[in-house]
């Protein structure tokens, strides 16, 4: 299973990750980020396929995806 961390101080709440994720891992939450807007929450982490599209498309580099080693080899 992958581990997704979202940096509270980097996130600006643009919601690109919510729209772009093919597995719908991210959900809009009521948590506030350092910018003052609502930030996403990686609620459905177990569905994550490890495509790292959110990492590439996050304009602020707030998302970090850690995929376990056995998945990386495949």
């Amino acid at each position: 299973m992958a581990k997704i961390t979202i940096d509270k101080m980097c996130c600006k709440g643009c919601d690109i990750c919510i729209a772009i994720c093919p597995k719908k891992v991210f959900v809009k939450s009521k948590k506030r980020n350092g910018y003052g807007s609502n930030m996403p929450d990686a609620q459905n982490v177990k569905d994550c396929a490890g495509c790292r599209l959110c990492e590439r498309l996050c304009p602020d580099g707030a998302i970090d995806v850690e995929v376990e080693a056995e998945k990386n080899e495949n």
Binding site: M9, C10, K12, G13, C14, L57, C58, P59, D60, G61
Partner: peptide
């Protein structure tokens, strides 16, 4: 954080 507005494409180019 960078001075780009929320959702700006510049961050994606940077990455």
């Amino acid at each position: 954080p960078t001075l780009f507005c929320p959702g700006c494409g510049n961050g994606i180019v940077q990455m």
